[in-house]
Design a protein around this nucleic acid. Sequence first.
DNA 1: TGCGTAACTCGACACCATGTTGACTCGTTC
DNA 2: GAACGAGTCAACATGGTGTCGAGTTACGCA
Lengths: 217, 217
Amino acid sequence: MSTAQGDAPGTGRGRRPVRPSGDDRELAILATAERLLSERSLGSISVDDLARGAGISRPTFYFYFSSKDAVLLSLLDRVVAEADSSMRQVFGTPATSAREGWSRAITAYYETFRRHRALTVAWAEARTTNAEVRALWSSVFERWVQQCAAAIDAERARGAAPQGLPARDLAVALTSMNERVLYATFTGDGPSVPESDVVDVLLGVWLSAVYGAVGDV
Amino acid sequence: MSTAQGDAPGTGRGRRPVRPSGDDRELAILATAERLLSERSLGSISVDDLARGAGISRPTFYFYFSSKDAVLLSLLDRVVAEADSSMRQVFGTPATSAREGWSRAITAYYETFRRHRALTVAWAEARTTNAEVRALWSSVFERWVQQCAAAIDAERARGAAPQGLPARDLAVALTSMNERVLYATFTGDGPSVPESDVVDVLLGVWLSAVYGAVGDV
DNA sequence: TGCGTAACTCGACACCATGTTGACTCGTTC
DNA sequence: GAACGAGTCAACATGGTGTCGAGTTACGCA
């Protein structure tokens, strides 16, 4: 957050700038949004709340962002980058065992969203009303699905996993499960799995779905 | 929508009533809501739209319902009743095989929501903003989870399924998967499983999760 | 037949949130 | 010191929600 305090525009050392710089204000808006989201729901936060929180008037807010959703999108970009990077890390490093590999993938997914709990919940809320948010979510989701499908195919190719459902369909179903279960766990409303067990439960289902051949029951 | 046209309140055959009855209007609002929801999203439908669609003014709408969400809740009550009844039917009838039993349960779940596609999607949207909708959803979800958990325990008791994850956690995870996967399939945005395959895919995951013991991988 | 009441209806209002406009300030640059 | 661009906000336009109070209509009952 770099806090101007003396090194702002051109003014020599020690001169306190009359106004905070534009960057500071933009960051202040983002910080306010993240703070307010950890306290109340996206829907109950108005543009005015964000502006006041950042010490500016509502019209000035629109100088920096085109809407409330644009702020959210901006915040989410960071999380997406983080998610992608942790995904690359997981699928890039060879696993010591299959269980360990999948466990790492699920844990990475879990940790990414846990670190940004409030944002994750707001994301889910905005997804239903905003097409851009929806698209951004889809892109993240799609990358996870592709990586998982590729990993499943690899396990089948080396003979470790049996053939069965199309790998992509399986990956979609399991990743969807992760998303929904983690959301319920984070918000705590409705039936949910306690946070301490959630990775184990998900892992259990993944392993049996990928490796457990079930012939005739 | 039934259209009064002569058989309304008390007035003898053929007398055209000056006003449609209150019940007619209430039903007209519900029908309008269902129709509009099949065309556009909940968020883009205003109370005024509902009122006009039902041939009344906006203030009059408030005579019948306290808000837009109240209309949705009213619509959902029917679906809940339907879901409960199909659930009772599924778990009430003995299955010819384990596969067939689970298949029937998943199909029932699928069919219930497929029949009310537009409502299901609106439900998901309202759930994030309205506590009552959230509570109603939780109650439906909870009943499914309990039934499934009981069924899993029964299969374990008779030796057909191995021990493993706690039955309830497993039921929560799998039911969550169903919900999220079906939602994606119905809306078609984001990675999803084609509607023709979705029951098979879900069933595959359920069977391996319930019956497929995976020891060390 | 006429009257009271309850059901019903809606114009007008108060309120709140969003997003835009246009005039203003203030540093920076030439 | 004029011109410029970044930043700022009062005031406005718009569109949605929910309420109030003054009506109208149907109907049971004296």
